[in-house]
Measured scan of single mutants.
Amino acid sequence: LRQRHVACLARSERGLGFSIAGGKGSTPYRAGDAGIFVSRIAEGGAAHRAGTLQVGDRVLSINGVDVTEARHDHAVSLLTAASPTIALLLEREAGGP
């Protein structure tokens, strides 16, 4: 079961505080899956403080732009754009009992 949710992050002077992996033109985060995933969350960064991202979340869109088939460098450029806030649509595998 997959759950979707939106995370809104305000960029700090240190950026957004998370890294992505995967996407076309880069090493897959999961074998056989060209999706883009949250690969790291920086301690004390914007994403960590927001508490809405988890490592392993699939990134579906960035500020309304679909990145499900995107190249890695395109997703990075969307994240590093000048916008002071970033809205992410994420998909998470629902774990637990």
Rank of each mutant, 00 (worst) to 15 (best):
F18A: 03
L16W: 11
D57T: 02
I36Q: 00
A75I: 04
A21K: 11
V67T: 08
G35I: 01
V55I: 11
H48C: 10
S61A: 14
T80H: 15
G35K: 01
F37T: 03
H5L: 14
Q54R: 13
G64C: 05
V65T: 14
A82I: 08
A81F: 09
D73N: 09
A70F: 07
R92Q: 03
A7L: 09
T85I: 07
A7Q: 04
P84V: 06
E13T: 12
Y29M: 05
I62R: 02
A42P: 08
I41C: 05
C8L: 15
V38T: 01
A81R: 12
H72I: 14
G51M: 07
H48W: 14
G23R: 00
A46Q: 12
A46D: 14
V67C: 08
V76R: 11
G23E: 02
D33T: 11
G51D: 07
A75D: 00
T68N: 06
L53G: 01
P28R: 07
R2K: 13
P97Q: 15
A21E: 13
L88V: 08
N63D: 09
R71M: 09
H48N: 09
R58A: 03
K24M: 12
E13H: 12
A34I: 10
A21M: 15
E43K: 10
A21G: 10
I41Q: 03
L53M: 15
R4I: 08
A10M: 10
N63Q: 07
D33P: 03
S83R: 12
L90I: 15
H48F: 14
D73P: 03
A81E: 12
T85A: 08
Y29H: 07
A34P: 10
V59E: 00
R40H: 15
A31R: 12
L89M: 10
A42M: 14
G96I: 12
P97S: 12
G95S: 11
L60R: 03
T68H: 06
A70W: 04
E69V: 07
L1P: 05
E69K: 12
I20M: 08
H74D: 15
R49S: 14
A34R: 12
G15L: 04
C8G: 03
L90H: 03
A81I: 08
R71D: 12
G56K: 00
S83V: 13
G22M: 03
G32D: 08
L88A: 03
K24C: 06
G56P: 03
L9I: 15
L1S: 13
E93F: 07
V59D: 01
E91T: 03
V65K: 11
D33M: 10
V6D: 05
A50T: 09
A10G: 11
R4E: 09
R40I: 09
L79I: 13
P84A: 12
P97A: 12
G32N: 12
L78T: 03
L9H: 02
A10S: 12
A75R: 01
G15R: 05
L89T: 14
L89Y: 09
R49P: 06
H48P: 08
L89S: 10
L78P: 02
E13D: 15
V55E: 09
A46S: 12
S39H: 06
T68G: 05
V55D: 02
F18T: 01
L9V: 15
L89H: 12
Q54A: 13
G56W: 04
A47G: 08
A21C: 12
G56H: 00
